[in-house]
C-alpha cells in the first residue's frame, strides 16, 4: 500500500528552484533513507509533503487521499521529528509528551500509558520529571523523537534526527528507528550521514539540487556503479594535482581531492592506472596508492560529482 506519493512537485523560492519535478512514492513498512548534502532540498521536500509550505506544481497523495490531503485526519496518522530541537524547554519530559499526546487526542489512562511507553522507548523514564535544560544533547534529541511517537504514527518523518550528537546517542537513536520498523512504522529518514542510511534504510533516495537523482536499495545502487573502479592516491602536495588533466583521461569519470588524497573513479578495465600515476607523479609526488570497492559514498560521488560532506559548511 502506498502511504505517500509526490508527483511532479515543483517548489520555487523566487528564482531558485528548491524542488525540481520530484516524484516519490513511499510504501507501507518501508524505511526510506533520503540522502543529500545540506541545501539539497531534503527539508523542503519534507515540509512540502507535510503541507507546511505551498508548492507551485504537482500533486501529493497521503494515505490514499488526493483531496484534503493535509486534513487533521491525515495529520493524526503522521509524526514529525524536526531537525532542530522543538521541545518545550520549560516543561518536563513527561509534560512535553503529555502535551503532544493530548493534542493527538489521547485521553486519561490511555494517554498516561502512552507517555510512559514513549519515555521508556527512548530510554528517558528515569528523567521524566526533569526539564530538557538539564538534559545532554543526545537526551534532548531522544525527547524530540519521543514527542512524535505517543500517538503511534503510521508514517513517521525524521528530519536529520542525529545532527550534532555523540556516537553513543546516535546508536541509541538508530536502534529506536530499528524498533519502530519492527513495529511496522513507515519512516522517511533524512540525513547526510551515509553510514546511517546503510544501516537502517530499506530503500535509498538520493537528492541533490532539488532533484531525485536516483533511488533503490543500497545493493542496487552500488551494483549500478560496479562497472567503475576507485583509486585513492595519497600525494605530498595536493594543491598541485592536475585535476583537469586527470579528468581528461579516457575512462576517468570523476576526480576528487580530499585533503592529501586524490580519488579517481574510472571505468573498469580502462587500463589507465599507469597514465594516472604518471600524471600525478609529475606534479604532486605519490606517497601511497590503494584501490577500493565502491560503497554508497561512491554512488553519490559518481552521480553528483561531489562528496556528501561537501555541502556541510553551507
Amino acid at each position: 500500500m502506498t502511504i505517500a506519493a509526490m508527483q511532479g512537485i515543483v517548489k520555487r523560492y523566487g528564482n531558485e528552484l528548491a524542488l525540481d519535478y520530484v516524484d516519490l512514492s513511499i510504501h507501507e513498512g518501508e524505511i526510506i533513507g533520503l540522502l543529500g548534502p545540506n541545501g539539497a532540498g531534503k527539508t523542503t521536500l519534507i515540509h512540502t509533503l507535510l503541507g507546511m509550505i505551498p508548492f507551485d506544481k504537482g500533486s501529493i497523495q497521503l494515505f490514499g487521499r488526493t483531496e484534503k490531503v493535509f486534513s487533521h485526519e491525515n495529520k493524526q496518522k503522521m509524526g514529525l521529528v524536526t531537525q532542530e530541537l522543538t521541545v518545550f524547554e520549560d516543561l518536563t519530559a513527561k509534560e512535553n509528551l503529555e502535551f503532544f499526546a493530548g493534542v493527538y487526542g489521547l485521553k486519561g489512562e490511555e494517554r498516561k500509558k502512552r507517555v510512559e511507553e514513549a519515555l521508556a522507548f527512548v530510554g528517558l523514564s528515569s528523567n521524566a520529571g526533569k526539564t530538557p535544560a538539564k538534559f545532554s544533547g543526545g537526551m534532548k534529541r531522544r525527547l524530540n523523537i519521543a514527542c512524535a511517537l505517543t500517538h503511534h504514527p503510521k508514517f513517521l518523518i525524521m528530519d536529520e534526527p542525529t545532527v550534532g550528537i555523540d556516537p553513543q546517542s546516535r546508536n541509541h537513536i538508530l536502534e529506536t528507528v530499528e524498533k519502530l520498523r519492527e513495529q511496522g512504522t513507515t519512516i522517511l529518514y533524512t540525513t547526510h550521514y551515509m553510514e546511517e542510511v546503510q544501516t537502517i534504510a530499506s530503500r535509498v533516495v538520493i537528492v541533490d539540487q532539488g532533484q531525485i537523482i536516483t533511488e533503490g536499495t543500497v545493493n542496487e545502487l552500488i551494483a549500478n556503479i560496479q562497472h567503475e573502479e576507485k583509486i585513492n592516491i595519497d600525494v605530498s602536495t595536493p594543491g598541485d594535482v592536475p585535476v583537469e588533466r586527470l579528468k581528461g583521461l579516457e575512462g576517468v569519470k570523476n576526480v576528487h581531492v580530499d585533503g592529501s588524497t586524490v580519488q579517481i573513479i574510472s571505468t573498469v578495465g580502462s587500463g589507465n592506472l599507469d597514465r594516472v600515476l604518471s600524471l600525478v607523479k609529475e606534479t604532486s609526488g605519490v606517497v601511497g596508492i590503494q584501490a577500493e570497492k565502491p560503497d554508497l559514498e561512491d554512488v553519490f560521488l559518481t552521480l553528483t560529482g561531489k562528496q556528501l560532506r561537501d555541502g556541510e559548511e553551507e
Binding site: 515540509h47 507535510l50 507546511m52 487533521h72 485526519e73 495529520k75 493524526q76 503522521m78 509524526g79 514529525l80 524536526t82 531537525q83 532542530e84 530541537l85 522543538t86 503532544f100 493534542v103 493527538y104 487526542g105 514527542c147
Partner: peptide, 13 residues
Amino acid sequence: FTERRYRIQSLPM
C-alpha cells in the same frame, strides 16, 4: 516563528 512552528503545524489542531 522559530523551528517549532513546523512541529506545531504538523499537529492535528
